[in-house]
């Protein structure tokens, strides 16, 4: 489903974030990206939803070439990819319902459909009671669930997450992981960059370690590594 071929990314300031990366991630996979700070994890994630374009090499998702893709095709690519952030990126002046519905509204989904799908997705992430709350009235874990709901409401084939548990305590982090696990079981491919050792070790999923912009390790049912 995802294929990176000889991908290098050098930012305009000269920072070499990725060097000659080759990767294949199959449909329905659950993949952890680990590695030290500054290794290039976020850069790799950004290549997947075309926030960044590689300096060299090709990125393909479902045989769509993201490098050659025209600007106006990008929105349609993004409708098939859900994105989750460490800092949630919720709109503070919108309620939980409005934040989630936003993802459908702005791609022109009919109003009635927006309502029913939004309610169903909010229910799925367990926030039914908080539907009318504003982000500042929610805990960190609850805010992250809103972000997850917004990311999955379009039934994306791919869900990418950049440190989705980075700001959460261990229990809340596990709640989010349970949610991602559920979504993965329904057939969505999940790629998640993380520093959460316990989660990676416990989940026993594929682990790709990045160091200095290169793939240093790639194991099925791997562990976090970097043990002291």
């Amino acid at each position: 489903m995802i294929q990176l071929t000889n991908v290098s990314k050098i930012y305009s300031n000269g920072a070499r974030a990725l060097v000659d990366v080759n990767l294949k991630i199959g449909k329905g996979n659950f993949v952890f990206l680990v590695g030290p700070s500054g290794a290039g994890k976020s850069t790799l994630i950004k290549l997947l939803y075309r926030e960044e374009i590689p300096t060299r090499g090709q990125v393909q998702i479902n045989s769509r070439n993201l490098v050659r893709m025209k600007e106006r095709e990008v929105p349609y690519l993004r409708r098939s990819i859900g994105v989750i952030f460490q800092d949630f990126k919720l709109l503070p002046n919108k309620t939980v319902f409005e934040n989630v519905a936003f993802a459908l509204e702005v791609i022109g989904v009919p109003k009635r459909e927006v309502r029913s799908r939004t309610l169903a997705t909010i229910d799925l992430v367990g926030l039914k009671a908080k539907e009318k709350a504003y982000p500042h009235e929610l805990s960190g874990g609850e805010q992250q669930r809103v972000c997850v709901a917004r990311a999955i409401i379009n039934n994306p084939a791919l869900l990418v997450a950049d440190e989705p548990t980075g700001n959460l305590d261990p229990d809340t982090a596990w709640d989010i992981m349970d949610l991602l696990y559920e979504i993965n079981k329904r057939g969505t491919t999940v790629v998640m960059a993380t520093h959460a050792r316990a989660i990676v070790n416990k989940m026993q999923k594929r682990v790709i370690a990045i160091e200095n912009g290169r793939v240093a390790r790639d194991e099925e049912q791997g562990g976090y590594g970097y043990d002291v």
Binding site: E71, F102, A103, V106, N154
Partner: peptide, 13 residues
Amino acid sequence: QIMKLVGASNGFI
């Protein structure tokens, strides 16, 4: 930024 992320077209934005 969020609109772009969830796939709103430039025309819509």
